[in-house]
């Protein structure tokens, strides 16, 4: 995220003009931001110290009560945090690895290269509502996925995918005779896993596109020199491509974490947090507390905590990239 360009930038003789021009350039965007982004967010911070049913005008001040409830073992919050972490840990590394792999493959001199790039990118431009509806159908008990699995002789989950609250690690352990693992160890539910897979399916292409830019940026002669030195393709990938792409990889990871920690749309359209709350994520909980439970103040407190979690991830990533860039 940190750019070397800043360090290289020469002194700026337009400095005096920029004092004013800078703000003139910012002005239109800032008007939108102040009205529709900063303002509402400040309001959320303010609300997190209040209680508001949403449908009453009264918003009594409750100090830190909302935060206290949140950190004193609120079951739904813990569940949402757990689901979100599973979601992020499952989706982000997978979509990053697959995106990188596809980018490297799609960058080779192969016939139909453009076709493949197009195919991979296509899901990311389709409407998420459309995709959710299609996947609801694919995952249904009589949908395509179950049918193919049954025909190939594989077991299918019962209840079917999006209705199954069992943890996948729990199921795996159950298969070898270990029962009743703790909730945290049970793993994401089959339903959450289904949404995770769909998410990877949709975002993989975007990640590929981002990597493609980075891969194309690696000068040809680096590889040529390496292959003259007798480096294998495998070692070229791990010793040249991956290290050179490290900042891009970290960027993709950060984007991925920000995205997954805010995952909402798919949950909203496909499962509404069910079955048995195993697909409630932090962002969905914010929504549910605010709109389903008449607790907008508490919802705001969760949003604030979510904000700081994501901010932390961003800062950690920035630090790591900063170090890479300086090295």
């Amino acid at each position: 995220m940190v750019s070397l360009a800043r360090a290289r930038r020469p002194r700026n003789p337009l400095a005096a003009e920029d004092n004013v021009a800078g703000w003139v350039f910012l002005l239109p965007a800032m008007i939108i931001f102040v009205l529709f982004i900063f303002g509402p967010i400040l309001y959320i911070f303010w609300l997190s110290f209040h209680q508001w049913s949403l449908i009453e005008p009264a918003k009594p001040f409750v100090g830190l009560d909302n935060y206290r409830t949140l950190f004193s073992g609120d079951a739904d919050f813990n569940l949402a945090l757990r689901n979100t972490i599973w979601f992020a840990l499952g989706v982000v590394p997978t979509q990053t690895a697959l995106g990188l792999l596809l980018a490297v493959l799609a960058n080779r001199k192969l016939r139909g290269k453009t076709f493949f790039r197009t195919a991979f990118y296509f899901p990311s431009i389709s409407s998420s509502v459309v995709i959710s509806i299609i996947f609801l159908w694919l995952y249904s008990a009589r949908g395509l996925i179950n049918y193919v699995l049954i025909q190939l002789g594989f077991p299918t989950p019962r209840p079917p995918w999006l209705s199954n609250p069992r943890g996948i690690i729990d199921m795996g352990l159950g298969a070898v005779g270990i029962e009743n693992v703790s909730v945290w160890l049970a793993g994401p539910s089959v339903a959450l896993l289904s949404i995770m897979m769909m998410n990877i399916w949709t975002t993989m292409g975007t990640m590929m596109i981002i990597f493609l830019a980075g891969v194309q940026d690696i000068p040809n002669d680096v590889y040529e020199a390496a292959s003259l030195d007798g480096a294998s393709r495998r070692s070229q990938f791990f010793d040249i491509t991956v290290p050179l792409l490290r900042p891009v990889i970290l960027f993709v990871l950060t984007l991925g974490f920000i995205g997954t920690f805010q995952v909402f749309d798919q949950i909203f359209v496909m499962t509404s947090g069910g079955p048995a709350k195993t697909t409630i994520t932090l962002a969905y909980l914010v929504f549910q507390e605010g709109f389903g439970n008449f607790s907008m103040g508490y919802a705001s407190a969760i949003a604030v905590v979510l904000f700081f979690i994501i901010l932390m991830i961003y800062l950690v990533q920035r630090r790591i990239v900063g170090e890479t860039a300086v090295r």
Partner: peptide, 25 residues
């Protein structure tokens, strides 16, 4: 490209808004 008072602070504020889920606002 420009140096003007408040630039870094405003930029940080802008970036941090990406971390609030849209639904609450």
């Amino acid at each position: 490209r420009m140096q003007f008072p408040g630039r870094n602070l405003v930029f940080l504020l802008v970036i941090s808004t990406m971390m609030i889920p849209g639904i609450v606002t």
